Simulated assay, not measured.
Amino acid sequence: MRALAFALVAVLTFAAAAGAAEEEFTPEFGALEGAELSHFLTRNFDAYKLPVGQFTRDEQPVNVIEGRIREFVYRAEDETSTLEAVRNYQRRFTELGYRTLFECAGDECGGFDFRFNAYLVEPPAMRFDLADFRYLAVEDEARERHASVIASRQGGRLFVQIIAVEGETAPERMTAAGEAPPPRVKPGQARLFALARRLTEQGHAPLDGVAFEAGSAKLTDDSAPVLTQAAELLRARPDLRFFVVGHTDNQGGFDGNLSLSRARAETVATRLAAEEGVQPGQLVPKGVGYLAPRASNATPEGRAENRRVELVLE
């Protein structure tokens, strides 16, 4: 199973790298003879915590470097020791103009604490043995380049991880000053935002989309999403109380419309509490009939606009 897992990781790693330029995964510092690349990853801009000292007193000395980060892990099936591996990389980095910042082995690094504070690629690509590992950190100050090497042996194999960082500033990704793309909202969220804004600015807001069967307090099926969104807002502020106010048009007598508007307000309040999880004490249903129109009752369009239920902040 382990061999199969390793093979799958290797296939996926190389498939991802196949489209990259060859120099992307052929580092300037080369690799040990006979070693195979088991992991490669590029992060175009990120931060890397480069350990530069022994882990002591609950603290790991690090240099935080921002820029382009490349991860390499090599695996060798021979008897190369971790010391031999690190010395070869150290010699190569020195030839390239790097200087050694810190090197250590096993307990000299801080042992268990060092291992769990240093970044390691996940197995099976990288394997690590606390009893047999070495670490090297190098720097090329002139070119703002840093690298770390971790070599460890496990299961008769040598694993070498190299993290190479090229110091860079973050690429410019901002729009021009004063410009920004419009927010992307999920369906229905625009209505929720509008409801919250109107309650904040005006103290009341209609539940647009809530409708009833003609002459009845029975909600239509289309009302459900609106009430669900309103409930989300109400549940977020359980400290606030709201009047749920029913309104009608002027068709029919006043007493009948007053009774109908109250019944519709009670239906909405009951639905919000019973099915949407709003605290019943937050809601006070009231009906005002056609005493507060928001459009003319002289036209069908105006009357439709007047038939509504509103939330009013107490």
Rank of each mutant, 00 (worst) to 15 (best):
E103V: 01
A194Y: 03
G215L: 06
E84Q: 14
A236Y: 02
D140A: 03
Q251I: 13
R2K: 08
A274S: 13
A76C: 05
V64I: 14
T56E: 15
V165A: 03
S81D: 09
R198M: 01
A217T: 04
A10F: 04
N88I: 00
E139H: 15
A142F: 04
N44Q: 06
T26Y: 04
L207N: 04
N250W: 06
E84A: 12
G246H: 05
E66V: 11
G215T: 01
E213W: 09
A35C: 01
E139T: 06
V11E: 12
L12R: 14
A18C: 09
F114R: 00
A214E: 14
L313K: 05
V210P: 11
A269C: 09
D239L: 02
Q161I: 00
Q282Y: 06
G289K: 06
L192F: 00
E84D: 14
A5P: 01
R294G: 00
E23V: 08
V86T: 12
V288W: 11
T270V: 04
E166P: 10
E166Y: 04
E33L: 08
L50M: 15
I150D: 07
R308G: 11
R92A: 06
A298R: 00
D58E: 15
G209Q: 02
K186V: 07
L219S: 10
E213M: 07
Y135C: 08
G167R: 09
N88E: 14
P280L: 06
N297C: 02
G277P: 08
S152M: 03
V288C: 13
S223Y: 09
A3W: 06
V312C: 04
S81T: 15
G167M: 09
D78S: 11
P181N: 11
R145L: 00
A125V: 06
E122N: 12
E122T: 14
R237D: 10
L32H: 06
A170N: 03
S81E: 00
E166A: 13
E95F: 06
L272A: 01
A125M: 09
R153G: 08
A18T: 11
M1P: 02
L120G: 02
F212E: 14
P206K: 06
Q189L: 10
L207A: 03
G302F: 08
V160I: 07
L4P: 04
R303M: 15
E79F: 03
S259P: 01
D113E: 14
R43Y: 00
F114D: 00
A190I: 01
R157M: 10
A18R: 13
Q90Y: 01
D255C: 07
R153N: 12
A7I: 04
V86C: 10
L195S: 09
V309F: 05
A18S: 14
L219T: 09
A230Q: 12
H247M: 10
V185L: 15
N297H: 15
D132Q: 01
